[in-house]
Amino acid sequence: MSALGAATARLRRPRPPRTLAPTRAVERLLAGNAWLVFAFLYLPIIALVVLSFNDNRLASVWGGASLRWYRELVSDAAVLSALRNSLIVAVASTVVATALGTAAAIALERFRWRGRRTFDGMLFLPVIIPDVTMAVMMLLFFVQVFRFAGNMLGITGAFGLTTIILSHVAFNISFVAIVVRARLAGMDHVLEEAAADLYASPWQSFRHVTLPLIAPGIAGGALLALTLSLDDVVITSFVAGPGSTTLPVYVFSLVRRGVTPLINAVSVLMLAGSMLLVIVSLSLQGRRTGGERRRDGQRSLPSA
């Protein structure tokens, strides 16, 4: 009996994962591929940063390191105005889209109501629709709105920051809603029940339990909205008016006219900005973990 027990115990002991990991040769290939992918992802960025400090006009000739293009940049009124517009558009559209998207996520994930499925489908469309189609939609929409406003109300509307912000809100709501909803889905509904059981009203339960637990999701959604807004070229260029050019649209028009080291400098600043955003959000998220239920008893692939 005990001999049998010992034998089964030996059988049940997990084998060392090493035997399950790919063979050494395959492992080398995989690692090599990973290094190549990382090189592929980062080399262009690194090259851009280096070139932005190149004093020479030609990208291929190193003229020594200088801040020449950065100095030119900060005295370029067009760049500064575009940067200002970009920030206004990004912040405004992010604030609005985050509020609306979070509410949409809560309505979809925590309540049962008629029309829920239809709304779910409609919310999904802006995510899969290509920029170009979205741009066409927004352009034609505002043309019609302006025509209507002019004919019926005698108000003249014009393309500008407002039309850009509204367009960005239109596509950002969905992205925020999806990110927040994933977080909500990962949060056990029983916590809200526990709050209600402990005398919290629906609002108190949201304020003290749901909101703190989905905050990283809301922050992630807002960051995504901010990034998408700062990324957008096509939609913005369709609904921008005179004087409301954003930084990506301005850079895009510059690039099409030809590459100058000034663009390198602008690009590096834009990259630095987005990286800063990510790092800030990552450190925020790192501090706020929890609320997610980890599935237990399931092991993932062995670590080689």
Partner: peptide
């Protein structure tokens, strides 16, 4: 929230 009862939930449902 208006009932004089409280619950110990199955997986405790402690606020993380």
């Amino acid at each position: 929230d208006r009932r004089p009862v409280n619950t110990v939930f199955q997986a405790y449902a402690l606020f993380p």
